[in-house]
Amino acid sequence: MGLKEYAGKQIEIDDDGFVVNVSDWNEEIAKAIAAENSLTNLNAQHWQVINFMRKKFTEDGDTPSVRALGKLSGVSIKELYELFPKGPAKLAAKIAGVPKPRGCI
């Protein structure tokens, strides 16, 4: 737990660096978190995944797994790994300001 500055705002983050309050998030913060994780250019597909992740979390109260992302976000699993090479669900969740996915699949 701690505070970290993203895009000029003090944001509460957990030990793994995930934003604690979903409502703290905005697109500028997303870009800052992405840059910190070596993703300097978020393209339309990145945003498609990020927005899907937020939508799904708001609906279900749960962060979607890679399998769910591949089936429902409109971006295939292959593309997901190209977009977020260091682990799609985890990194996309971090950038989207939703909790770390807990599933094993």
């Binding site: 890679v66 090479p85 682990g87 799609p88 094993c104 699949i105």
Partner: peptide, 8 residues
């Protein structure tokens, strides 16, 4: 194996 890839 899948879990490893999910963690990068």
């Amino acid at each position: 194996a899948n879990g490893a890839r999910m963690e990068g």
